[in-house]
Design a binder for these strands. Sequence first.
DNA 1: TCGCAAACA
DNA 2: TACTTGTTTGCGA
DNA 3: CAACAGAAC
DNA 4: TACTGTTCTGTTG
Lengths: 632, 632
Amino acid sequence: MANSSSDTSRKNVIELNDNKAGMTGIDKARISQIIEEASRGSKFYQRQQAKRQADAKRAEETRRKIDALSREALQAGERAGDAEIRRAVSAADFSRTHVHIDMDAFYAAVEMLDNPRLRHVPMAVGGNDMLSTSNYAARRFGVRAAMPGFIAKKLCPQLVIVPCRFRRYKEVSRQVQAVLADYDPQFSAASLDEAYLDITDHLANRQAINLLPGPKATSVAELRYRVFISSSLTASAGIGPNPMVAKIGSDFNKPNGQYRVAGSSDRVLEFIRQLPVRKVPGIGRVTEAWLNSLGVSTCRDLYEQRGALYHACRPLTYQFYMRACLGLSGGFGYGRNGPDRKSVSVERTFQATDSLTWLLDEKLPELCESLVRHLTKSGFLGRTVTIKLKLDTFEVLTRSHGLPSATDSVQAIQSAAAALLRQEFLPGRPAPRIRLLGVRVSSLTPRKAVIADCSSGVGSAGPKQARLDELLVRSTKTIAETSTKTNTTAAVCSSSSNETVSKSSTPVTSSTSENASKFNLVESTSVETKTSASSASESALSCPICSASQPGGLAGLNRHLDFCLSRSAIQTAVNDYSNDGSACFTPGSNSASSRKRIEAASSSGRPAGGSASGGGKRARIAADGRTGVGTI
Amino acid sequence: MANSSSDTSRKNVIELNDNKAGMTGIDKARISQIIEEASRGSKFYQRQQAKRQADAKRAEETRRKIDALSREALQAGERAGDAEIRRAVSAADFSRTHVHIDMDAFYAAVEMLDNPRLRHVPMAVGGNDMLSTSNYAARRFGVRAAMPGFIAKKLCPQLVIVPCRFRRYKEVSRQVQAVLADYDPQFSAASLDEAYLDITDHLANRQAINLLPGPKATSVAELRYRVFISSSLTASAGIGPNPMVAKIGSDFNKPNGQYRVAGSSDRVLEFIRQLPVRKVPGIGRVTEAWLNSLGVSTCRDLYEQRGALYHACRPLTYQFYMRACLGLSGGFGYGRNGPDRKSVSVERTFQATDSLTWLLDEKLPELCESLVRHLTKSGFLGRTVTIKLKLDTFEVLTRSHGLPSATDSVQAIQSAAAALLRQEFLPGRPAPRIRLLGVRVSSLTPRKAVIADCSSGVGSAGPKQARLDELLVRSTKTIAETSTKTNTTAAVCSSSSNETVSKSSTPVTSSTSENASKFNLVESTSVETKTSASSASESALSCPICSASQPGGLAGLNRHLDFCLSRSAIQTAVNDYSNDGSACFTPGSNSASSRKRIEAASSSGRPAGGSASGGGKRARIAADGRTGVGTI
DNA sequence: TCGCAAACA
DNA sequence: TACTTGTTTGCGA
DNA sequence: CAACAGAAC
DNA sequence: TACTGTTCTGTTG
Ligand SMILES: Nc1ncnc2c1ncn2[C@H]1C[C@H](O)[C@@H](COP(=O)(O)OP(=O)(O)OP(=O)(O)O)O1
Ligand SMILES: Nc1ncnc2c1ncn2[C@H]1C[C@H](O)[C@@H](COP(=O)(O)OP(=O)(O)OP(=O)(O)O)O1
Ligand SMILES: [Mg+2]
Ligand SMILES: [Mg+2]
Ligand SMILES: [Mg+2]
Ligand SMILES: [Mg+2]
């Protein structure tokens, strides 16, 4: 009778997520215990507990379902898996060289750069309520991204927390990306701190000029070196025949390291087989737990359990698993002009309230106005409006509605959102207590003729995704056979054909770095990004705008002239801005200068984890635009 | 050579402000020391230091100026003072009975009411970054309003801080005010937690009905008792012949006490003479220090130093001092339809930034849109736009500009504000680092014909300010003569004709409270203020709005109908709202019900302190609408 | 009219 | 980590 | 299409 | 005191 999910209680409800570079070999149990104690009894904790229960239940259901499978069903599953694998392999292309670059402890590294006192202490970026990331010293204490600051302090009382300066990181990101563009002008930025490159052409050009014909890894080390020279920050890199292995590789020797998986099916399999499924991007905490409970821990297990798995998930997910265990999963790096953005949203956490009036009169307008600024700036109209509510229990609800036509009007969006919100405060039920309100618009269509183009800075050309369609059969067996262990400790350089570059205090490119400047590099190391004071220089012109006579005497009149000049300049700029939607809007009449660059739309495009409900960690910020963790 | 202002260093830069009920007899020096240590070295601290220096310098200048005065000048000053006093006294009216009611530890008391666990511990309302107020237990530790939470924690590690719930306090405030209205329908609310009443008429009516002819203090005790019955909160009261002494009196026996100054010139003087000048509303920390340095500590000193003082300040301020030392200062309670509001402003603190772009594109629009919501809601147009900047050094700047005509358009206000902001980022200077941006509009004129009237709930009639113009001479001597010490320890009830009501756990009105309901009381004790779920009941009507055909089948269509109904209801409501500007906007088509009441415009109207530059305490909040301390 | 500083809740 | 927000007043230029 | 959940940075 | 904000994807009904 006793439901087996009832003994979830023996495990910690909130456990340290140590799936991050720099967190190996730490005392996970002790740290988890501290986290648990700091949270126990809170509403957040209770919600986590409920989610974990649901996870366990779902896993149990899946297990039951699998146990009930007939031998025939299992074999059918395996056949389906083999077919999937055949298709994936036949579409695979091992001829190109993909690189994934990921900055080390990015926000934290920037802060350490700007403030030397932070360099030798455990520190994190964020606020008391939520951290965006931590440096590697702090990670030794269990302090990491998405952890509340006040808990981090319990793990590490000496921890120094510094507030988030998103725009600064964006500046630095631009410097880094300027280097990347030299290796692949079409590189695809997945976030401020990471990007996918296809350096095949770059390598070819290199060879053509007959310079530095060394191994691919050398070029990448050089790239990292140049990033360091340009930004004073270290990056890690993964190199492989497709973006997936490149991505995994970039984490392999973090920080300040790189790892290469050679461009052959065998080498890829050798690398991937032994990896815990959690390393596969797209398999997160919940899916990992779900898979583990089905006896799947490593990617090899994914293959071996393919018969059962087939019956445990939907076809698309199954395809994802099969490709993942081959190291061939797709959907990572898009081209620079990758797919248009699909939604724009704004959400904010606040003191929980049950006042519909306040939500409608104060919060919703703020959100909608902010949303429309973003929407307008990005040059889209939206047709679907979704509101998001987080209750004070941390449960999340969404409600959406399709408008008759696409819009970017505050009026339209706000009234739709308001209607949705009001539906949640109907007379019968007790008013919900809301701790977060969000508004999203989707079903986007580009506004007007010319879409706002923010990307004109670096490069432009077409898509670049390594396509995973038709190709050859073979390797099905290869997986089942090769089961030798590969050296994962990353020490000896090129001990196998999968190469490792060891970590030193700065990236070393032997002699390569000397010649780096021979490639068509713009010496754009220190991009001047403070657009602040620009465009005020037009105050020399004279202009009668305000028309009305101005009291205030001599100096007063002069001041007024300056003022109106300045005001008209702004009008001009505002128009420019709404018309071209530039991300890096520099106000003023003397535009034309100022570098514009795309804001790196975060796109990963991998399938979501299984079908489990499972956990998740959320946290609060501490302030308006104060110390928050947000991206704007 | 050594400037005398250089030895300011011996005193604490940031000193505990213990000028608050519940903070007498605490170890100010020790507490100040802790505060000092918690702050030392911070930018905030440095700014305070600079201000204190400036204070000291100005005081020194004043002292020098006074020392240089001739005997004739001093005598002329005294004559001017005497004239001022003659005028004030001749205008004085001791025939009416004014009452000032002030809730005890208001926000904190509400929280203690709502959460019994807080009742017996030191607690405060606010966030880690700033407290709005504290309960009396916390005050024993030096914890008080306008103190950052993290410093409060050092003073009192057990302190419990609970977030601010402004709307809840507003609800409670309405309950309290409903009681006050029975004693003076024209009462003037100075803030959520305090009000001025003129109960002369009430007392007359009482006597007319021949009920409870007891002393005035009894009526007030009864009032406080009724407040307690209605709200479960205690209030303190001051009773006197004018609002000034009433105001001072309400603090005299706080918490849960009252004090009466009888309505004669002698009694008022007896009361006022011995008071530290700091007790006079309008004399704050800086002015106190300035006066002290001139040898003026008590109100009597104000009189005695009137000759010198005359030469140390401007006529208006001098008049204020002279009236203050008579206990006759004016400008306190207005009538319910007191003067229209003079400005509307919004300001926000954030992580300091030097990015003009961000300020212009993100923050300024937010502020302006929020501002215009308030402006619209209050039914005004404004002609003057002022921006406020706080630098990361905590220096504050304001820049303003008069528009050609009054407006409430976001466009107009924002572009003016933007122009002003841009002026602070001119090419020459280094970009300032801004930690706070604010926008204010002033020179208000009521919008359209009918001004939005939110006050129709309680009472309506005209102004009520006790006027302090022409009257009789006399008391000049009276002051100089009576110098006996009056009992300030407030224990024995009516030991003099200045009455004290001792504190008990609830206000005691002997038998009075029994008869209270015989006065024309609405039994409006529990005003239902949750306007939340109203107006959703119209979803029974059918309505084709969206016109376009809706996909989604049967239930889908029904849902869509509900939606559009709801949406149209909102439209209606929004229109209502912008047309009548009601403060207590209840959305929905079925309006007509729902009590409306004025939002108690905070008006005090006393002269500003001296002319020194001097100190001030500022602090940060922690979040958006999160834990903040703000009034909206 | 503008900028600053003080005051209060 | 971290020192508010909204409104009014007076002084001095 | 709408709601939910997982994932990533 | 206190557990984020933005975007995308897949599953389920
Ligand atoms: N959960 C999160 N919430 C908000 N911001 C985040 C979150 N995770 C990461 N970020 C921000 C801060 C990071 O510095 C930046 C890049 O993320 P990521 O590359 O995953 O980590 P990292 O660069 O800080 O460390 P590393 O890559 O060395 O593990 O994105
Ligand atoms: N500096 C401030 N900043 C923000 N809000 C404040 C500030 N001071 C007071 N408040 C709010 C919280 C208070 O409860 C409320 C009433 O103020 P006030 O009457 O002066 O103190 P109080 O009612 O908390 O204690 P008491 O009146 O018993 O001394 O106004
Ligand atoms: Mg990184
Ligand atoms: Mg990254
Ligand atoms: Mg009070
Ligand atoms: Mg008060």
